[in-house]
Simulated assay, not measured.
Amino acid sequence: MNLKRFGVPAVVAVTAALALSSCASNEGGAAAPEESASTLSGNLVGAGASSQDTAQQSWIAGFQTANPDVTIDYDPSGSGAGRDTFLAGASDYAGSDRAFKDEEIAAGGFTACAPDTGIVELPVYISPIAVVFNLDGIDSLDLDAATIAGIFAGTITNWNDPAIVATNPDATLPDLAITAVHRSDKSGTTGNFTDYLAAAAPGVWTAGSVEEWPIEGGEAAQGTSGVVDAVTGGSGTIGYADASRAGDLGIVSVKVGDEFVPYSPEAASAVVDASPFAEGRTEGDLAIELDRNADDTGVYPIVLVSYLIACEEYADAANVELLKSYLAYTASEDGQATAATDAGSAPISDSLREKINAAIDSIK
């Protein structure tokens, strides 16, 4: 890890704690030091994207272990609820599966932020969104964008529909109704999924890129875990969820160019690095405009980029250094490796990390 890049106490604290632990281990069971190397203390509150929950719990555990006088609480209430909580000043930071829109930022109202200052948005969690299904005897399917869109739009209603058969000639597809499961809550995962449908199959999916499910019918479920539970508990069900929660469900490989690509962290990361930042944002606002129609080999286009969102400048600076330390840990090589192991996310690239660290350093 290159400590000079971070410039905040968290990495020092984490590294020092690990070093002390290592020394104790190497000395054949010597007692741990009576005092922690960390000088950080206090409480942070975050709320938002349920897709981040596994990664957040891993980050929190690692950070609190190195900084025992720190407590961090994260409520996986969903992206929309998390943004609302942050706007109201009831949390130190938000987790969101989409960046704030230009018009939302222009409207202001960020209660915790100093007047006339903006926000920083840090893309620290990158993950494919898996299209998951439950069909007896079938573990994987190949589907193109138009077929996926037709299923969720309600125009393809049976598993032996010719469009599904055409790309899965070797599968024994049942004469069984499709139950498409979607999120009941306002969700960044829904926003990213419908953004893909609108970009890749606009002639079939005409409802646009939206965070609240716009189509009647199907089955609604609360949160990522609710969708996974509904698909798991049904027969002939299909849904979409952060890939870290796919478990043993059947998985769809998505047509990209002339091939069908299964999800993977590497394929998700490739799309992000190939996509530009949104124009007209401040230097610390690292919102990414994902290229949903990328057709490079090995690219998986149904990707979720989830952000940690904070103020450029806080009206009350009491928790600023602690917050900056925690944010730096989530973006660090160690933090990203922990999330990759526990949540199956794609570690951010070194070039993106440098931009994120610069944004964190600018927080006041």
Rank of each mutant, 00 (worst) to 15 (best):
Tyr314Arg: 06
Ala47Tyr: 04
Asp53Gly: 03
Tyr93His: 07
Ser264His: 00
Ser36Ala: 15
Leu141Tyr: 11
Asp334Arg: 11
Ala315His: 07
Thr71His: 08
Thr190Ser: 05
Gln222Ala: 06
Val8Ile: 03
Ser264Arg: 00
Trp59Leu: 10
Ser244Gly: 12
Ala310Asp: 14
Ala49Ser: 12
Phe260Asp: 14
Thr237Ser: 10
Phe133Pro: 11
Pro9Leu: 04
Ala114His: 05
Pro174Arg: 05
Ala153Asp: 03
Arg353Gln: 07
Leu3Gly: 02
Ser264Ala: 03
Ala294Gln: 10
Glu313Phe: 11
Val305Asn: 03
Gly234Arg: 14
Asp273Asn: 13
Gly203Lys: 00
Val272Met: 09
Ala90Gln: 08
Ala243Gly: 08
Gly89Ser: 01
Pro214Ser: 06
Ala153His: 12
Tyr74Pro: 08
Lys364Asn: 06
Asn192Ser: 12
Pro347Asp: 02
Ile238Ala: 01
Thr54Gln: 15
Ala267Gln: 09
Val252Gln: 09
Leu352Ala: 12
Thr157His: 01
Tyr240Arg: 14
Leu141Gln: 15
Glu103Arg: 13
Thr297Ile: 06
Gly247Asp: 10
Ser77Val: 12
Glu321Gln: 11
Gly46Cys: 08
Thr297Arg: 14
Asn168Arg: 13
Ser244Gln: 10
Ile302Gly: 00
Ala287Trp: 09
Val11Asn: 15
Gly223Tyr: 01
Val299Phe: 14
Ser253Arg: 12
Arg292Ile: 13
Ser51Met: 03
Pro128Cys: 01
Val11Tyr: 04
Val252Glu: 08
Cys113Trp: 01
Ala171His: 00
Ala221Leu: 02
Gln56Tyr: 10
Asn26Gly: 05
Ala268Phe: 00
Glu27Ser: 06
Gly280Ser: 10
Pro214Ala: 15
Ile178Tyr: 08
Ala163Met: 11
Pro162Met: 13
Ala246Asp: 11
Lys355Ile: 00
Ala88Phe: 05
Gly48Ala: 06
Lys324Thr: 03
Ile156Pro: 13
Ala200Gly: 08
Ala88Lys: 05
Phe63Thr: 05
Ser184Thr: 02
Glu266Trp: 07
Ile148Tyr: 03
Val181Asn: 09
Glu34Ile: 05
Glu289Val: 13
Ala287Glu: 10
Ile302Asn: 07
Pro262Lys: 15
Asp175Ile: 00
Leu143Gly: 06
Gly89Thr: 06
Thr71Leu: 06
Phe6Asp: 04
Ala221Trp: 00
Ile60Trp: 02
Ser306Ala: 15
Gly218Ile: 06
Ala198Gln: 14
Ile129Met: 07
Ala337Cys: 07
Gly226Leu: 07
Ala340Val: 09
Asp97Glu: 04
Ala13Val: 04
Ala49Asn: 12
Asp73Arg: 14
Val256Trp: 13
Ser362Leu: 10
Val299Glu: 07
Ser140His: 07
Ala17Phe: 08
Asp144Ala: 12
Ala278Val: 15
Arg353Ile: 00
Gly239Asn: 04
Ile356Gln: 09
Thr297Gly: 06
Thr65Asn: 15
Ser264Met: 01
Ala24Asp: 04
Gly218Tyr: 02
Val131Cys: 03
Gly226Ala: 07
Arg183Ile: 15
Val70Asn: 09
Tyr300Arg: 11
Leu286His: 13
Gly109Glu: 12
Ser349Phe: 09
Gln52Arg: 10
Ser225Met: 10
Leu249Asp: 14
Ala112Thr: 12
Ala315Trp: 05
Lys364Ile: 03
Asp258Glu: 13
Thr297Ala: 13
Asn357Met: 15
Lys186Tyr: 14
Tyr93Ile: 09
Leu87Gly: 04
Asn160Gly: 11
Val228Pro: 02
Thr194Val: 02
